[in-house]
Design a protein around this nucleic acid. Structure first.
Lengths: 185, 185
DNA sequence: AATTCGTATTGGACACCGTACAGTAGTGGT
DNA sequence: ACCACTACTGTACGGTGTCCAATACGAATT
């Protein structure tokens, strides 16, 4: 069922994922789905976590942990872009709480630790990296119809942009101290 | 009409913003709205930009442009949290294209320029800052019912987290060069 | 002042959505 | 053979965004 739902979203977009269309694809009455899933939101939650299974994690004993973080986030970014419609949901649900999300969180934390980011900062850095990656993916996910007047970046340019920003972020995290000017509003 | 829509969202949440409820608040038939707005999505787009009008911009001649950037983003963050339901929409629409969004973009670019961030990097930095700020706001926007088992951060903690991450980002941007390990997937 | 005209509004309807309720097929364990 | 349980079905309710044709109304023109 999750498989069929994922197919549907991939082929026809999130808007096409309706209890009725999903049911008809499974040759089943719409209500039958509620024997397997509490409601549509729960279904989407499962989907969200399911997608993260495709993220490639760096080797556990990678030499440069910062490079590992970069790889991990970059892979997450590209995987998220596989299902653009889903991405906005990640942020409003605070990034999916299923087993896959948990696993990626643990790996990231371990890499941060190996990069000498000590604890109070580490969990903040984790959240910052998640937000940045998912946020950028969400931001990228809708750009097909080039507006014309302004410069509309291509997917490749966005990936470059993502990598640069990620580099800045990792630099700052390693540096450990915020920039000279910090003035909360 | 935009005003009524904003009230509705503020008082009863985005879910309560329906053509029918909005119409009834204006003592008008639902279809009447379509004389002023193409469809509901367009309505939300207008709302999105409207909210940004409340962002406080730093004085144009501020001494430390990096501090100005920090202020500007922090204000944007808090303003966005005023209407948490709307935030996820920003990312899927790539951050609202109305006049207010444009204005904020220009101000940010000017501050970056004054912070000696030259052009190819400047527009990337702009996008990174937008993504980070909106992303963090979206991430923060749903956290009322403390889960209990894990540490559920408060709004104040999230603001701290936001500020730290923003500091890291600005540090990295000023540094200009990405961290040693950059390996696109 | 009378008439025209365009825009705001209305009533009614369509197609679709998520989901609840009650009842039925089929399957495993005793 | 019976029973409990799960997956499923038919039907239906209330809600949604939005379209169509017809109307009210206020400003501009004659």
């Amino acid at each position: 069922m999750l498989g069929a739902a994922r197919e549907l979203v991939t082929e026809r977009g999130l808007a096409a994922l309706t209890m009725r269309t999903l049911a008809s694809r499974l040759d089943v009455a719409p209500n039958a789905l509620y024997s397997h899933v509490a409601n549509k939101t729960a279904l989407i939650d499962y989907l969200l976590d399911d997608v993260l299974a495709d993220v490639e994690v760096p080797a556990a004993d990678i030499d440069d942990p910062v490079a590992g973080l970069h790889q991990l986030m970059a892979s997450t970014y590209t995987v998220l872009l596989t299902h653009p419609d889903l991405v906005p949901h990640y942020l409003s649900c605070q990034g999916a709480h299923g087993p896959n999300a948990h696993r990626l969180g643990d790996i990231t934390t371990a890499l941060l630790r190996r990069a000498d980011v000590s604890e109070p900062a580490a969990s903040e850095a984790l959240r910052v990296l998640i937000v940045y990656t998912i946020g950028f993916a969400a931001f990228t996910s809708r750009l097909p119809p080039g507006t014309g007047t302004e410069h509309q970046p291509s997917a490749a340019e966005m990936l470059d942009n993502f990598n640069h920003g990620l580099g800045w972020l990792l630099t700052g995290i390693q540096q450990g101290r915020p920039a000279p000017g910090q003035a909360p509003a």
